[in-house]
Amino acid sequence: MDVFMKGLSKAKEGVVAAAEKTKQGVAEAAGKTKEGVLYVGSKTKEGVVHGVATVAEKTKEQVTNVGGAVVTGVTAVAQKTVEGAGSIAAATGFVKKDQLGKNEEGAPQEGILEDMPVDPDNEAYEMPSEEGYQDYEPEA
């Protein structure tokens, strides 16, 4: 019985440690998101679009440190934060509304985080759909 109880105690310690790591990862992701939003706020009209992409990228980098179902929630929060940063930029006159959601080359930025393969159960990952990809044929 002692062996059984000791095993359960060790398992509990492992769960607590994993929860603490997840909590730490979420806190880091939130900190990076805040950094990115402050970065966007300090940019001029020309830099705002690039700044919004930076927020998304920093958040995406930190999301990889967070495991399990938390990833889905962090990704949703990050996307809403990026959308909010863009709205703030438009409201303050840093950028025109028609410039939001495009990178410096004018290509749409939507789907940055949505296409990231995420499995809350950590069982399997699927690649994003290939609808947006084109076949590449090298020139002879």
Results as ranks from 00 to 15, higher is better:
T81H: 03
P138S: 09
A19C: 05
K45G: 03
G67R: 14
Y125W: 08
G14Q: 15
K60Y: 05
L100H: 03
K97P: 10
E126F: 03
E126D: 12
D119W: 03
E123C: 13
G51D: 01
A17F: 11
V26N: 00
Y39V: 05
G51F: 11
I88D: 04
T75W: 15
E57V: 08
A90G: 02
K12W: 11
N103G: 06
E131Y: 06
A107K: 10
E57S: 05
F94V: 03
L113N: 01
E123Y: 11
S129I: 06
G14S: 14
V55C: 07
T44C: 12
T72K: 06
A30V: 13
Q99L: 10
A85F: 10
A29N: 01
H50T: 08
M1L: 00
E57R: 05
G47L: 13
V49G: 03
A17E: 06
V74E: 01
V118S: 10
L100T: 08
H50Q: 14
G41N: 03
Q109S: 10
V16K: 11
A53F: 12
T64W: 07
Q109D: 11
A124L: 05
A19P: 00
G84I: 13
E35K: 10
A140G: 13
G86Y: 13
Y39E: 02
S9N: 15
S87C: 10
A76Q: 08
T75P: 01
A53R: 07
A69R: 09
E110I: 05
E139M: 06
V3Y: 02
S42T: 04
M5A: 02
E114L: 10
T44N: 01
K10M: 10
V16Y: 15
D98A: 04
F4S: 00
K43C: 13
E28V: 10
M5W: 05
V118R: 12
Q62E: 03
A29L: 07
A30Q: 01
G84E: 07
Q79K: 11
K60S: 04
V63L: 08
S42R: 08
K80N: 04
V48P: 00
D119F: 03
T44V: 10
T44W: 15
L113G: 10
G47R: 10
S87Y: 13
T72C: 13
Q134K: 11
G93H: 06
G41L: 02
E57F: 09
T92W: 15
E131S: 12
E105D: 11
V95M: 02
I112H: 08
V71R: 09
V37N: 00
D135G: 06
E35D: 11
A85C: 10
V52G: 01
V3F: 03
K96Q: 07
P108N: 11
M5Y: 01
E114R: 10
V63A: 04
G25N: 04
F4Y: 06
T33M: 15
G31T: 08
E57W: 06
E126R: 10
K96L: 11
N65G: 11
A76H: 09
K34Q: 01
A17H: 07
S9W: 15
Q99W: 15
K12F: 03
M5P: 00
E105L: 09
D121I: 08
E13H: 03
F4T: 00
P108H: 10
N122H: 05
I88Y: 14
K97F: 14
V40N: 00
A124M: 11
V71Q: 03
F4R: 00
G84N: 10
Q109P: 07
K10G: 01
I88M: 08
G73K: 11
G7K: 08
A89K: 02
D2G: 00
L113E: 15
T22M: 11
G31C: 01
V15T: 01
G68W: 14
V82G: 03
E83R: 07
A11H: 00
E131F: 10
E110L: 12
